[in-house]
Computed example of a mutant assay.
Amino acid sequence: MPIHELDKDFFWFPDSDQWDKEDSIIAVGGDLDYRRLQQAYQRGIFPWNDPDSELLWWHPLERMVLRPREVNITKSSRNLLNQKKFDIRFNTAFEEVLLNCQRIRRKNQQGTWITDEHVEAFLKLYQLGEAVSVEAWRDSKLVGGLYGIVVGSCFMGESMFSKESNAGKMAFITLCQRLEHWGFRLIDCQVYNKYLASLGAYPMPRMRFIQELEIARHENLDLDEVFTNPKASNEN
Rank of each mutant, 00 (worst) to 15 (best):
V134Y: 06
K75I: 08
F155I: 03
D139M: 02
R78F: 04
I149S: 04
I73D: 10
N72V: 15
K169F: 07
M160T: 07
G157L: 07
T115L: 03
E62I: 03
C176Q: 05
F86E: 11
I173N: 02
G111V: 07
G144A: 04
G157C: 06
P60H: 11
Q177S: 13
G148E: 02
S140A: 08
C176R: 00
F172L: 12
E135Q: 06
L179W: 14
M160W: 00
R105C: 13
E95L: 09
A131L: 10
I104Q: 09
V150C: 11
V143Q: 00
V151I: 13
L142Q: 02
V97E: 14
G145M: 02
G152S: 15
D116K: 09
A136Q: 03
R78M: 11
L128R: 12
R89M: 00
S76H: 00
S140F: 14
S77P: 03
A136F: 09
G129C: 10
M156G: 06
K124L: 02
D116H: 03
K75G: 07
R103A: 07
K85W: 02
E158D: 09
R78K: 07
Q109D: 10
W137H: 03
L128Y: 01
G111N: 11
L123K: 05
F122G: 00
V151Y: 00
K85V: 15
K169E: 13
Q102N: 12
F155V: 12
L142D: 00
